[in-house]
Design a protein around this nucleic acid. Sequence first.
DNA 1: CATGAATGAGAATTCATTCAT
DNA 2: TATGAATGAATTCTCATTCAT
Lengths: 224, 224, 224, 224
Amino acid sequence: MAYQRTPYVESKRAEARERLVMAALSLLAQGGWRHVQMSAVAEAAGLSTGAVYLHFPSKTQLLAQAYRAQAGAELRVVTEIADQTAPAAERLAAAVRAFAQRAMSNRRLAYAMVLEPTEAEIEEERLHFHQQFIEQFRRILQSGQDAGEFELADPQVAAACIFGAITESLMGPLVLAARAGGSDPDARPLIENVLAFCFHGLRSPGATRDEAPRVAPGPRRRRK
Amino acid sequence: MAYQRTPYVESKRAEARERLVMAALSLLAQGGWRHVQMSAVAEAAGLSTGAVYLHFPSKTQLLAQAYRAQAGAELRVVTEIADQTAPAAERLAAAVRAFAQRAMSNRRLAYAMVLEPTEAEIEEERLHFHQQFIEQFRRILQSGQDAGEFELADPQVAAACIFGAITESLMGPLVLAARAGGSDPDARPLIENVLAFCFHGLRSPGATRDEAPRVAPGPRRRRK
Amino acid sequence: MAYQRTPYVESKRAEARERLVMAALSLLAQGGWRHVQMSAVAEAAGLSTGAVYLHFPSKTQLLAQAYRAQAGAELRVVTEIADQTAPAAERLAAAVRAFAQRAMSNRRLAYAMVLEPTEAEIEEERLHFHQQFIEQFRRILQSGQDAGEFELADPQVAAACIFGAITESLMGPLVLAARAGGSDPDARPLIENVLAFCFHGLRSPGATRDEAPRVAPGPRRRRK
Amino acid sequence: MAYQRTPYVESKRAEARERLVMAALSLLAQGGWRHVQMSAVAEAAGLSTGAVYLHFPSKTQLLAQAYRAQAGAELRVVTEIADQTAPAAERLAAAVRAFAQRAMSNRRLAYAMVLEPTEAEIEEERLHFHQQFIEQFRRILQSGQDAGEFELADPQVAAACIFGAITESLMGPLVLAARAGGSDPDARPLIENVLAFCFHGLRSPGATRDEAPRVAPGPRRRRK
DNA sequence: CATGAATGAGAATTCATTCAT
DNA sequence: TATGAATGAATTCTCATTCAT
């Protein structure tokens, strides 16, 4: 407090922090939380081990920050979609697709973020992250309910179900594909299938629900 | 090493193995994977540290075996339900309730089993466990599809969605409740809500689906 | 480097040095030697970490200087008393009281100065400090001896004994009181007791030492 | 608890603990507390670093134990003397001589024990150690007081004064001699001088205390 | 077979000191 | 001169695994 920080210095500090967070995420994407060791992060960020502690008081804090940064970016995308004015069904479909596709584009990272915790503090972040995601889905569902689009006993539970359905549906194939040495399989059919499940549930054939929401991107044919 | 093992010795061996697996699970249930240390397992099983290695070549192998044992028990319950001859909707509801209630009765363990992995090898088991579960749900859905009960684009995906919906819906509240210091909240309403979502999806009010399966507990009528 | 230093610059330098020394002492008084870290000293002095090294070649040098500064101040008080012309017994009592009371008024610092060393180099200073103190006591005793007031085998040893008696007597209660959460206990009775011991030693009741110096505070009468 | 420990194993454990404590004291005697590093202790004890933690939960605990062990040995000597039935003056003289000579025979260690603390927990031990020592001196003085040998305002303070007088008188010359490269100077005259001070205080020549206790070694007459 | 003390390769964290700017 | 980010060696503690008894 005795020194003024020039904007230049500020930006250098901020940039180092940023580099450290990116390095941590990069290592996380490569080998999961176990792979994120302070010395490795420092090296990946082009710093010495000790320097990490100039920016984060502990490993836990760094990891939490990395988690927040990544989760925040994902969340922003979904939140923006939830904020739009389109019909709830369309927004939901768009949100699911966005979330799923982003997850598929960096599978290892998504996996670590969604399923693989390490410490209590990170677990805290994970829980928070899930809840915020579910909250966005809930907002969509609620507005759909209010607009008469949906009829749901509990939008909160439905939102959690949707989130769980996405992650579980994607993560299994994801890991298997990654293990297979894997060229990127096309996740889109999978995503559409998940959406179909979410919209229709376990539809019985006799049900004459004449108009299912148009959830597929682009010109979509209707189920006859 | 050329000696034959007498059945007595065999059974002693088998019993020690069993004790070690139970000890590992007990520690897992108490404090998560981090809590499962070889010396602690040995002590809990009434063996010396070194003796563990007479039964398992490594910690990883022991953990994998423990995971398999626990997952197998859970799986058996669900598989038995799937094997019954009742209508698919009823079997599905019963399977979901059984899985969910068992998970709720030992939250810490369920959490560790479903979400909290440690090493790549255990992760393998976790994946396998999920897939086997999903497979049982798929079998139910498939038989329902074959019997004309359901109309599903992809029973595999639907099964994964159901599994994900359950775990995500339960685990969040589970952890929060545990943190709150937690008297056991009643999970049943939650489970029924999840079932409702799975059966109806995002039902639109105008849909004239005349008879959805009654999924609530109590006397259940059959679809006519 | 061949430039002459202007007086102005000199004084700025001197002032910065002074501020650093005071900062070090302040931290020492707050948390002992462990608390005195270079970055903390720099911040407390309103300088950058690097700047400290423009004034002191190493931490050790800074600490030594800080020690000297503080010890010097204490020493000056005692020396002035020793220089007076009053009878030795009175001067001794006054010196002991002054030293003890100053120590009690800043216990943490006194403790660090008297008992809690860190490195060999500081230890050097501590030793020197003790010796200088003892030297002042010795001077008093010697003059008393010369004036026929005392009869001592070795004034040097007696001076060391007095110094040791004071510090040991005060430091124990001091620490205990500090730990108790401590309102300032009145140290004066303790000091007077120490003085009594120093003057009388282990007095045997039968000894007909007619006039011991009146060492208690309040109006003091002359030695006859 | 699942295993019986055979006496043999017990003694091995105990022996390793003992070796570690001795190693710590040895390092302490060589270079002070700073010199006592876990890896160095382990090596000196012929163990690996990790093994230390089989016997002591932390460095602090090991150091505390080492302190207690050494202090206890010293204390025992003094306590035994205090327990005897000789006149108090003789016991006091004997206790002072014993304590001082033992300290002189291992100066570096004595110094570390008496003056050089490191952590709060060790400081605790040091304080306790001093107090126990002072307590023994106090017991002697009290019994002397009760027997009419001494007349003291506060035996507790006098005991602390004696302890302080010894340590301060010895430690200074001790360190200086050690620094000088140090052949062992004869500490006995110093000790006798300290004793003289303790017994006579700042004796005034006119005092006709006809019989001071003969504190010098050699044939000692009893007080009549 | 059983024991449990011992191993030793890490991992996180600290802080005096340096040096590019 | 002054800055403060960066260095990196040092130190404590962990725990799966081994091996002499």
